[in-house]
Simulated scan of single mutants.
Amino acid sequence: MSRATTLHSERAYRIEPESQYTPQIGALVEMMNYTRLTTLQAVEGLTTEQVDTVPEGFGNSIGMLLAHIAAVDRVYQMMSFEGRDFGEMDGAIMGGLSMGQQGTPPPTGQSLDTLLAELDAARKLTLDTFTTKDDDWLASRLPAPYDDMNQHWAWFHVMEDEVSHRGQIRILRKHVAPKKKE
């Protein structure tokens, strides 16, 4: 059974916060989990070559977008959980965040499993940290210089960014792994 199928059977079509989270954080987590389910479904079964291909007329590969999604989680962890300045991120995170335009570009030739392992690791840290927070924290502002946003908006944006890029992944998939007509 694939990760997407397993997650679908466990989480789809319900927003029911689990007991380890406060109610609002739990609802956010369920939405983030569903978003991740749809991302996993969008990339399921792709080969390394398909993940690395940048079709003509496009600026990114599916692999680059997956690296970006993981990097966004990492950046918001740094800003939200650690109170660190955006400028303090390492080159690998910046490479993923900027889709290779700054920092160290994510390497090509990574298998889908490798890319998904980084997505899983980044999200695991987010979800584990959420168990130590409460709804008052979720409503609080991020530390300066990001104090114009609150925690809830920041983590909503992480989910929103993934949804946006998942749409791009679906379009790219049609170019790199078209369905065969029977």
Rank of each mutant, 00 (worst) to 15 (best):
R3E: 12
T5R: 14
H8E: 15
E10H: 14
R14T: 15
R14W: 13
Q20D: 07
T22G: 05
Q24W: 03
I25E: 00
A27K: 08
L28D: 01
L28K: 02
L28G: 03
M31W: 08
M31R: 10
N33R: 13
Y34F: 14
T35S: 13
L37D: 02
L40Y: 07
L40P: 00
Q41R: 13
G45P: 06
V51Y: 04
V51G: 01
D52V: 07
T53G: 04
T53M: 13
V54Y: 03
V54K: 09
P55E: 06
G57T: 01
G59V: 10
I62S: 00
G63N: 05
G63A: 06
M64W: 13
M64F: 11
H68S: 03
A71K: 04
V72H: 08
V75I: 12
M79H: 03
R84I: 09
F86C: 11
E88A: 11
M89N: 02
A92G: 05
I93A: 09
I93L: 10
G96E: 12
G96L: 14
S98W: 04
G100S: 02
Q101I: 10
G103I: 01
P105N: 05
Q110T: 06
S111F: 05
S111R: 02
S111V: 01
L112V: 07
T114N: 00
D120C: 04
A121E: 11
A122I: 12
A122F: 07
R123Q: 15
T126Q: 02
T126C: 01
L127T: 06
L127A: 02
L127E: 07
D136K: 10
D136G: 06
L138T: 01
A139C: 15
S140F: 05
S140K: 04
P145R: 08
D147A: 15
D148R: 12
M149V: 11
W153C: 11
W155E: 06
H157M: 08
E160N: 12
E162T: 11
E162H: 06
E162V: 06
S164M: 15
S164F: 14
G167P: 09
G167W: 09
G167D: 06
G167R: 09
Q168K: 03
Q168G: 02
I169A: 00
I171T: 14
L172S: 05
R173P: 00
A177E: 05
